[in-house]
């Protein structure tokens, strides 16, 4: 229990330090844009694949259930709502945690064990400001953009699968979306994308920056990032869904 609290304390301290440095240090815009381009571009195929198939899988499953009640017409709405609210953000975030999170963690970890971070410090540059802050914000922004892109793609994937599996007309599919997936569904997806991005960005940067023990240490950092990201994403998903659904219910949405 003490170890857990100590670990949480370290993460909170690192995160607050990261925010403080973001506010008060010179922003390394070149490092940020290069990371953003690199992470975003490299993750596009993964996001595209995850998005298309998430929507398609959901469409196939919903169709199996709905056809028994002769309610295939509502497939577009139900599928989009379910994908945007829950399955899309979490599955795409898992894929990104495995790809973006692992890469960033490994990169920072390698820099740490090959003395690059200490060398930067010795040259009078704060390694958190130079390496960590731009990577954190690049991961956050690229995660939000990729999740948004992935969700749009997943709706398209669902529509295509519905047409081929259930014979649902695309126009009919799209016309049902506003009835089931209103503004609060999109808001929920956006909040989740942002929170998942912050979690992934923090965890991959912290674990990479804390790497010790040579190449084995880098491996451990990557594994820790992947595991912690997935657990954190699931917990955050549950908390956000619970909290925001409560708010939307109270607002009568």
């Amino acid at each position: 229990m003490t170890a857990l609290l100590s670990a949480i304390g370290q993460h909170v301290e690192f995160f607050l330090g990261l925010l403080r440095t973001s506010l008060f240090s010179r922003f390394e815009s070149r490092e940020f844009t290069s990371q953003l381009a690199s992470i975003g571009w490299r993750s596009l195929p993964t996001t595209l694949t995850a998005g298309v198939f998430t929507g398609a899988i959901m469409a196939v499953q919903f169709h199996l259930q709905l056809k028994d009640f002769g309610a295939e017409a509502t497939l577009g709405g139900l599928n989009t709502s379910g994908t945007l609210r829950e399955v899309g953000p979490i599955l795409i975030a898992f894929m990104l945690a495995g790809k973006v999170g692992a890469f960033t963690s490994a990169e920072l970890g390698t820099m740490k064990v090959t003395d690059q971070i200490q060398a930067i410090r010795c040259l009078g540059v704060d390694p958190v400001a130079f390496l960590v802050v731009p990577r954190f914000w690049a991961v956050v922004l690229s995660s939000v953009l990729l999740l948004a892109f992935g969700l749009v793609v997943s709706v398209t994937g669902g529509m295509i699968a519905s047409y081929f599996v259930g014979g649902v007309n695309p126009q009919q599919y799209l016309s049902m979306i506003p009835r089931f997936a209103a503004a609060e569904t999109v808001a929920l997806a956006c909040v989740k994308a942002l929170v998942f991005g912050v979690l992934m960005g923090h965890l991959c940067c912290a674990n990479g920056y804390w790497t010790e023990g040579g190449t084995q240490g880098v491996g451990r950092a990557v594994r820790t990032t992947a595991v912690q990201s997935m657990v954190a994403i699931v917990l955050a998903d549950f908390s956000i869904s619970w909290f925001l659904n409560g708010i939307f219910t109270a607002l009568g949405k």
Binding site: S34, M111, T114, D115, Q116, Q118, A119, I120, R121, C122, L123, G124
Partner: peptide
Amino acid sequence: GPVRRKCGLVFQLPALLDS
């Protein structure tokens, strides 16, 4: 900060930024 400008450390590994 000023101490590090006065004492430059050359590491055992080159520790260069590959990118």
